[in-house]
Simulated scan of single mutants.
Amino acid sequence: MDLVLTLITAPNSGALSEGMIETATAALRANGAETGEMRWLATGEACDLFFTGVTCEAAEKALENCDIAADKVVQITEGRAKKLLIADMDSTMVTGETLDELADFAGVKDRVAAITARAMNGELDFEAALDERVGLLAGMSVAMLDEAWKRVEYTGGARTLVATMRTNGAFAALVSGGFDFFTSAVRRELGFDFDQANVLLTDDGKTLTGKVQKPVLDRQAKVDALETLAAQNGITVADAIAVGDGANDLQMISLAGTGVAFHAKPSVQAQARIRINHGDLTALLYLQGYARDQFVEA
C-alpha cells in the first residue's frame, strides 16, 4: 500500500471511534481506493489507514465531505519519517505571541495584537507591520523581556515532538519572525539544535530603541533556513517537516516535504494541504508514523 491516511483527534480524548474510521474507509473505497491495514497509533486518538489505487489529491477530495471530527492527512507512505524539523515559535511551539505579551508591559497590547493578527493572516506587509509594532516599544526597559518570558507557555506536545525527533536522529530548528531573546530561551528549554530570529536593538543594553536589526527575518528567511539546514545536514527539503501558523510560514510549509499548518490563521488554512486543528504538536509525530509508545518524553 503506497498511501496512508492518518486520522488524529484531540490528545487523550478517546474521540476517534471505529465508526469514524469506517466512514473514512467507505469514502476512499467509493472513490476507487483499495484499502488495507488499519493500525492504531494511539487507541482512540490516532490511527493509520493504508490504501492504494488513487492519487493523494483524489483521496483528499473523497474525504472532504466526511463528517469526521478529526484531522485527516493523506501522504505517500515512503519517506514519511523526516530528518529535519523546522518550526515557527509564536502560536506554534508556544501558545501566544511573544511580541504581544511584551507590548502588554508598555500598555499597548491591544494595538500591537491587532496589527499582529492582520500580519499573520497575510493582510499586512510583514516587515512594515513588525517595524510599526516594535516602534511602540521604544523606551521600554530591557528587563521587561524577562518579565514577558515568564508568561510564555509551551504548546501541548512541544517537548515530546522535539525530544522524539532528536532521539531518532533528526535535526530540530526553531526559525521565527519574532525575537532571538525568546527563541534562544525556547531552544535551550525544549532542546532544539538551532534557532534564528530577529534582534531587538537597544540603547546601551538597557532600553529598547523601538527598532529591529536589519535585514528583518521574514518569510523568505524561513525558506532560506530550510534550504540551508537541509543542505548542511546532507538531506533535501523533501526530508523535512515544517510547521507554522502564520502567513509568513506559508512558503516554508509549501517547500518542505511535509508542511503543516498548525491551528493556523484562515488564510494559511486555505492554502496549506496539511492542516492540524484537532491534535496538539504530537500530531506531527503521528503524521510520521510514530505510535504513542515510541514517543520520548523530555
Rank of each mutant, 00 (worst) to 15 (best):
L200V: 00
A27P: 01
G32V: 03
R187P: 01
G19H: 11
V94R: 10
G122C: 00
E64N: 06
G178T: 00
V268R: 08
S176F: 02
V54S: 01
A264H: 12
M20Y: 14
L85V: 10
A143I: 01
A81F: 06
G79C: 05
V237K: 09
N233E: 13
A173H: 02
P266E: 11
D71V: 08
D218K: 11
A225L: 08
Q232T: 10
E127D: 14
S141N: 12
V212Q: 14
L145T: 01
A10T: 14
Y290I: 10
A117T: 15
G14N: 13
G178S: 02
G107C: 05
M252W: 01
Y154I: 02
L136F: 10
D131V: 08
T25Q: 13
R39D: 06
R29Y: 01
D131Y: 10
T282Y: 12
E64C: 07
A24Q: 04
L284K: 12
M252Q: 02
N233L: 12
F192H: 09
K206E: 15
D48W: 03
D48A: 05
D239Q: 09
E34W: 07
E60W: 10
A240F: 00
G191F: 09
V186G: 08
A69Y: 13
L145S: 02
A240T: 00
I76S: 12
L5C: 12
A185R: 15
A143C: 02
A230T: 08
G246A: 01
A221R: 08
G96N: 13
G257Y: 02
R133H: 09
A27N: 01
T282E: 14
D224C: 05
L287H: 09
R187V: 08
F192V: 10
Q213W: 07
A24T: 12
A70H: 10
